[in-house]
Every structure is written in structure tokens, then in C-alpha cells.
Amino acid sequence: MRVALFVPCYVDQFYPKVAIATLKLLQRLGLEVEFPAGQTCCGQPMANGGFEHYTAGCNSNFIKSFSGYDHIVCPSGSCVLHLKDHLHDEKQEAEADRIRSRVYELCEFLTDIVDLQSLDVSFPHKVALHQGCHGQRGLQLSASSERVVPFFSKPLRLLQMVHGLELAPLDRPDECCGFGGTFCVSEEAVSSAMGLSRIADYQQHEATVLTGTDMSCLMHQEGLIRRKQLPIKVMHIAEILSGS
């Protein structure tokens, strides 16, 4: 099984520890993981801003970098959703199609492909899980609270395997944090207000750690938390699951 690691552009530059944790977690499970060196970005920043027609370069570079792998794993639901919905290339549509069906968000990969049943890590803290919307509603990583379907949550199930970890119940377990790509600056006031009300929910339930499947949501909330100097540590779910 050839597994490629796709590291979102901003994680590569600002959160290398999240990529390292993802890599180590996958390696610990006995997987051979490669990091294709030519990779850059999925193209989502342009596309969500209305400039999907500027993403051809990103698309062809992505296809070039990730052709030939059995699975492509990425520690971000948002980037994976973008690829699944929008990775196209007129010149190599068959390969684009193949990649779209083989790209996985980390928790999804651990659950559906690896079929992970247990983890030998411990994390004795009270943790709030932020369900990134694109992962949750877009990739169906967990049941959204609007839909009348049996409850499931892939990230939650994985966190429950961690020894000593206590999950903080939340009043609004899947409300958006307000990051939203360029939204976080173009609608700064609403974006910050949304983030702050998520954080109030974590504090209300005495969480000391905030985790999630998307570093972008977490970067935004971490920015708010650090500005207010609140006692909540922010970690990507890969960091907890890898025991790093």
C-alpha cells in the first residue's frame, strides 16, 4: 500500500508539528508513507474566493505530485473536501478522477481504511472537539445535528480510544467557528464573534484542550484564545492521537 501524505500549504509553513504528528502516527501503524516533494496547495483559497478558474495550476501540480499512490492522506477535512469536489484537469481528467476517489481526511482514513480499533496513547485532559464543518457535513466525518440520522462521529470515536481523555460535552457541538477562508478577514467582525462564542462554549464546559480535524479552524480560534490569554491549549487531533 503506497500512502502519500498531503500537507496543506499553511500547515507546512506554520504548523509543521501537525504534519510531523500525522506522519509519525501513520508510520506507527506500520504504513509506508511518502511526502511527495513537489506538492503545494489544493487551490481552495482561490476557489472559495470565487476564483476557481485560477486553480488550474494548483490542480495540475497536485495531480503531478500525487499520481500513482493507493491512498492520499491529509490532516484537513476542508482541503480534502475541496479536492473531492473540485480537482479537475482537462488534460488528465482520468487521473484527477482517480485521485478524487483516493484522497482521505486523516480520521476518515484511520476509520474506513485502516479500521483502527485501539490506540496505545494517553492524554489525561478534558478535551473539546471542534467539528470542522467541511469535514463533518461535506465529508460526512460525523452526523450533523440538523439531520435525522443515527449519531456517528469518526473523530470522536478515535478520541475515545485515547486513555484518560475526557470529552467536554458542548452546547452546540457542531456550530461553525467562523474561519471560512477569506471570510475570516473580509467579515472579520462576524468571524471573530463566531469564534468567541465557540470558545465560550468550551470554557463553559471546562475544557482545557481544544482539538479538531482542521488546523485552519484551530488557527483562527487559537488566535482568539491567545489574544485573550485564555487557559485553553489548542492541538490538532493528529497530535493527540500520535501521543506527541
Binding site: 506554520f14 487559537e222 488566535g223
Partner: peptide, 15 residues
């Protein structure tokens, strides 16, 4: 306006 920037790491993941 209301947020800190991420702390800057010494090197990128690819480095």
C-alpha cells in the same frame, strides 16, 4: 484586530 498570529516555526515541514 481580535486574533494573534500563529507562532512562527523555525522551519517548514518540507524543510
Amino acid at each position: 484586530r481580535q486574533r494573534e498570529l500563529p507562532e512562527v516555526p523555525a522551519e517548514s515541514f518540507r524543510e
